[in-house]
Design a protein around this nucleic acid. Sequence first.
DNA 1: TTTGAGCGG
Length: 90
Amino acid sequence: MAEETNRLFVGNMPFRMTQEELFDLFAQAGGVASVHVPTDRETGRPRGFGFVEMDDPTGKDQAIQMFNGYSVGGRSLVVNEARPREQRSF
DNA sequence: TTTGAGCGG
């Protein structure tokens, strides 16, 4: 069984950008499954990056080409394919 | 400013 996941990593995001903004932004590229914007709970400060999951690899590719280097909030967004999160088991 | 999280039996 192959799990089809299309996750995008968004870096260099303006701290003012929220998951809602990401969702609306990436929704223009295709179907957005969900967005994830983690924050550092130790410092309470956003890490400046987020994750966006697309419903289709096509929208993912579109989002990468559409928003990779996209200027917003005075910052250029960096969009790439996301990597699987750390595995807590060896 | 760059790779997230949380759960029951």
